[in-house]
Simulated scan of single mutants.
Amino acid sequence: MAQKSTGQGGSGRGSRELRVKVKTAKGRKLSSTRWLERQLNDPYVARARREGYRGRAAFKLVELDDRFSFLKPGARVVDLGCAPGGWLQVAVERVNALGTKSGKKQGFVLGVDLQEVEPLAGAEVHLLDFLDEGAEDRVKDWLGGTADVVLSDMAASASGHKQTDHLRIMTLCEAAAEFAFDVLEDGGTFVAKVLAGGAEGSLQGLLKQRFAKVHNVKPPASRSDSSEKYVVALGFRGAAEAE
């Protein structure tokens, strides 16, 4: 990570990195000023800009895959709520969706969202509410079969009430898990954002019934002051085996 010079000569090696301070502008809320200051001083934001990712969240998926290796060349991946596309970018590269890695199998990356997403080479993106009836069949049609990985970095719209927001995101995550059960290949992987707070027990129980291993992880790119974490469920067991 690049450091700013202190202006005291030399290479600047060993000098403290300078923080950007943002003054509260007229008409701007204090919370907005704090958010802007955090963004300007976030090393992952700067790194995403340098490396061409659409957001800092891309590094959460990078770190999760570095640890669990579920984005293998040739894998078929579905990203639920894929906007703005940072997770799509990581998946495209790692499963070789562009076919640029010689000698490696070529994967397929499919993103769905309620809003338009800027096109991305190597990914197929569709406007779709995954909660709609028949959404699973449409996804399998687009994939040409089942998926090896289902990803979800979705978060429900914030209400400002902590308990309500927690329940909303857990409900969304459980719906994503049920969707994954319908589209995953045996042995597949489900990765989703959850919030710590006491209501995730039912989801954990559900996943442990259907997957060989379930991990709860807070990747380094997840901000320390955030209650978010990620569930990584490996080794999907189809309906017959689960019974």
Rank of each mutant, 00 (worst) to 15 (best):
G74P: 08
A75M: 00
V77I: 10
V77M: 02
V78A: 04
V78Q: 12
L80D: 00
P84S: 11
G85S: 14
Q89F: 10
V92T: 04
V92I: 09
E93K: 07
R94C: 11
R94A: 11
R94I: 01
V95Q: 04
G103Q: 04
G111I: 10
L114I: 15
Q115G: 08
V117R: 15
E118L: 15
A121P: 14
V125L: 13
L128I: 10
L131F: 10
D137W: 03
R138A: 09
R138P: 03
V139G: 08
D141L: 03
L143C: 08
G144V: 03
D148M: 12
V149S: 05
V150H: 02
D153I: 15
M154G: 04
A155Y: 03
S157M: 13
A158R: 14
A158K: 15
S159A: 04
H161C: 05
Q163A: 14
T164F: 15
T164R: 15
H166D: 05
H166R: 14
R168A: 03
M170K: 02
L172V: 07
A175G: 06
A175L: 02
F181D: 03
V183I: 06
G187A: 13
G188R: 15
G188V: 00
T189S: 12
T189R: 04
K193C: 03
G201D: 12
